[in-house]
Design a protein around this nucleic acid. Structure first.
Length: 388
DNA sequence: TGGATTTGACCGAT
DNA sequence: ATCGGTCAAATCCA
């Protein structure tokens, strides 16, 4: 009898998952035609309606599941300890959540398991999946979002070989390079993550979407076998806060509208209370996982800029205290500088991702604002540090 | 004038 | 020897 119920729940779960995955697929199908469809609002409306219906249908099935499970299944705010102490039946639902999560990740990012992330995707346990999620950075969330926007990425990995084998702990680089031009060994480089991001659709298409950080270009190099040069950026706050974060940007050969962006090192400039908080807040990531499980409203507000909002939100966090870094910045088209251009093209950077975002977010009840949903970033970061 | 970008040179890794 | 990453002087620009 318990088995029957269990089986029923499993079936329901599968159906819900299937529905949501189907919805995601519809979003991806819509995406390549999005800009064409803007000229055909009726068609666009029909497509959106279908997507909304699919998600709504999946949502409607949710009440057949235990409310308790629903409340706790994906709650990203539960402390890690809560997972450990969950009763078995909740863990089972967590497993279902994990499967769903994996399914969803595969759905939106077929190559997620191929990317160069040192942290493994992990096994199928809820705890591991949670750890995985918590270990992911905002940049990877942006990747997920960009995948939603650009579909299956065909861009080549800008990194030919894996060089970073070292695990040396001392990452602190002298703020000033000595005259002897001592430089940090490449072995010291920590993890690299390569994303493929679309160029801005409007405005300056020579630049990839901003990522909420401020970067300073320090080099450009022609790369053998590549049609386009690679640009090298470091965190604007490198000197001030010895922040080791760097990124490389290179136009994808066979997809000139896309940039391969490789991030290296992580921002430390947010550690200081007076420093700009540079990490895209991990809450964003939690928000993503929450979006997948929270109220899916049939209401779609095309004008919603929630996708931009999360970025703006992250940028707000990123920039507080920075005194407007890059405010006097250079807005030449020379490089995809992310400085001093916040809000300029931001509203249009995220196409389908925004729409999906809007679908997930819009109409959700009052308590769904980022501020009210999530704990302060510092808390999270503290937790992350402890757990790592 | 100060900060950001450009660009040729330098240097470590392979 | 070659390539990729970084340095730093020159230059640009608000």
């Amino acid at each position: 009898m318990a088995n029957e119920t269990k089986q029923k729940n499993t079936t329901t779960m599968e159906e819900i998952i299937h529905g949501i995955v189907h919805g995601c697929q519809l979003v991806r199908q819509l995406e390549p035609n999005l800009f064409n469809l803007f000229n055909q609002p009726d068609m666009l409306s029909v497509s959106i309606d279908e997507i909304v219906k699919t998600f709504a249908a999946a949502k409607e099935r949710l009440p057949s599941m235990s409310h308790q499970d629903q409340a706790s299944s994906f709650s990203p705010m539960l402390p890690r300890e809560a997972f450990k102490e969950e009763p078995p039946q909740q863990q089972q639902t967590q497993m279902g959540a994990t499967i769903f999560m994996q399914e969803w990740l595969r759905s939106v990012d077929p190559l997620i398991q191929l990317q160069q992330v040192q942290a493994p995707i992990g096994s199928a346990t809820p705890l591991d999946m949670r750890s995985y999620l918590e270990s992911k950075t905002g940049m990877e969330i942006q990747k997920l979002r960009s995948q939603l926007q650009i579909g299956e990425m065909g861009g080549k990995d800008a990194e030919g070989s894996e060089r970073s084998k070292g695990t040396e702990g001392d990452q602190v680089q002298p703020a000033e390079a000595s005259s002897s031009r001592l430089r940090r060994s490449r072995k010291d480089e920590d993890e690299k993550k390569t994303l493929v991001l679309p160029a801005n659709q409007f405005g300056n298409t020579d630049v990839p979407p901003e990522d909420g950080f401020t970067w300073r270009k320090y080099g450009q190099k022609e790369i053998l076998g590549s049609m386009y040069p690679r640009s090298y950026y470091r965190c604007t706050h490198q000197k001030l806060y010895a922040c080791p974060a760097k990124k490389q940007v290179q136009r994808v050969d066979d997809k000139p509208n896309f940039f391969a962006v490789t991030y290296r090192g992580s921002h430390t400039c947010h550690m200081s209370s007076t420093a700009p908080s540079s990490s895209v807040p991990p809450q964003i990531l939690l928000d993503i996982s929450r979006e997948m499980t929270q109220t899916i409203s049939p209401q779609l507000s095309p004008s919603s800029t929630s996708g931009s909002r999360w970025l703006q939100s992250s940028m707000h966090l990123s920039l507080h205290g920075s005194g407007g870094v890059g405010g006097g910045g250079d807005d030449r088209a020379a490089g995809p500088s992310t400085s001093s251009r916040y809000g300029k093209d931001r509203e249009i950077d995220y196409g389908v991702a925004d729409m999906a975002d809007a679908m997930f977010n819009s109409g959700s009840s009052s308590g769904n604002s980022m501020e009210s949903l999530f704990a302060p970033a510092e808390e999270w970061e503290t937790g992350e540090k402890k757990s790592s």
